[in-house]
Amino acid sequence: MLYREFGNTGWNVSTIGMGTWNIGNQWGEIDEDTALTTVRSAFDNGVNLFDTAEAYGIPQGLSEERLGKALQGIRDRSYIVTKIGSWGRRTNEGLPKNVDTIRLCLQASLFRMKTDWADAVLCHEGDIEDPTVYLEAFEGLKQQGYLRAYGISTNKFEVIKQFNIAGNCSIVELDYSLLNPKAEAKILPYCIEHNIAVLVRGPLAQGLLSGKYTTDTVFTDTIRAKWHKNEAKQSKLDRDIAAVKALSANLPADTTMATTALRYVISHPAQPVAIPGAKSPEQAALNAQAGDRLLSATERDALLQSMKEPEAV
């Protein structure tokens, strides 16, 4: 595993982290023993950064609970990034947003994860127009020692700039992959300029870049079933699968689709950390192995070109 400086935090983190959305039953049922051994497998293979959120899981908070159990005994050798702002959203029972509520939400997260501090907390409202309440709450919690750094999870450039208005945003989490390279235009250069650490959710495009799926695939989990909701969404899914098929025809014989996709993301000059999910110890280990080398600029350009030519397949 390769490690790198994480923006301005001073942390030395693994190029491949682990997202824990998948271990909370929203991507299909997973028993607790498997969830815990999956996290430990990632750690044993060099992963030292784990991403979660207060609302991940069925019931909400389950991912944090399982992550906390899995990291018992190794908490001081790992970094936890959690997110606040989505509690109750799925059931239309969101909490009011004020400094006290945000403080209570973090305290609840710390309780679920069995830890005294979070290494980082992110605002989980990606379209927020005025982040003042989060900035005030996070700065206060940082001064109290409950968190070490803070930032935002969003795909919107203007939202990032507003959140960083005082220069205190340490981390941006965003959707970025071979299927969605939009962040390369503005957001990633901005993060380089301001020395902001980058976390990449969706580096495998919610599994599509594993190369396992065809246009006959029907997703039934609560996250991806929406891809079949209407003709427009189904058409986009079909286009994405065609693009992945085009890429697979140009892969080196000694690598896999998932490994290539992860390496593409972590090889950007912004030095992102990819946080793919996993539902088994074996999958966690395979994801981690992608962090043992980077791609050259030439290799990255060739991959993007392959994705742009699905009609040639």
Rank of each mutant, 00 (worst) to 15 (best):
Y3P: 08
S14M: 04
T15W: 02
G19C: 08
G19T: 13
T20N: 05
G24N: 02
L36I: 11
S41Q: 05
D44T: 03
N45V: 02
N45K: 05
G46A: 02
T52G: 04
I58A: 04
Q60K: 11
G68P: 04
A70H: 10
A70V: 03
L71Q: 11
G73L: 06
I74F: 07
I74C: 13
R77W: 00
I80R: 13
I84F: 07
G85C: 14
G85A: 11
R89C: 07
N92Q: 12
N92G: 08
E93A: 11
G94W: 06
N98A: 06
D100M: 00
I102D: 10
R103F: 06
C105S: 15
Q107Y: 08
M113D: 05
D116H: 12
D119F: 09
L122S: 09
H124A: 14
I128K: 07
T132R: 09
V133R: 00
A137V: 15
A137E: 03
A137S: 09
Q143F: 14
Q143I: 14
Q144K: 11
Y146C: 00
R148C: 14
A149C: 07
S153Q: 10
Q162N: 13
G167N: 14
N168A: 15
C169G: 12
C169L: 15
V172W: 12
L174Y: 13
Y176S: 00
L178G: 01
C191L: 07
I192P: 11
E193G: 05
H194R: 15
A197T: 01
R201I: 08
L209Q: 02
T214S: 10
T215Y: 02
F219R: 06
T220R: 13
I223A: 02
I223N: 05
A225P: 03
K233T: 12
R239A: 12
K245P: 01
L247T: 01
T255P: 02
T256M: 05
M257S: 11
V273T: 10
I275A: 02
P281F: 00
Q283D: 07
Q289A: 01
Q289K: 09
R293N: 09
L294K: 13
A297N: 12
Q305P: 04
A312I: 06
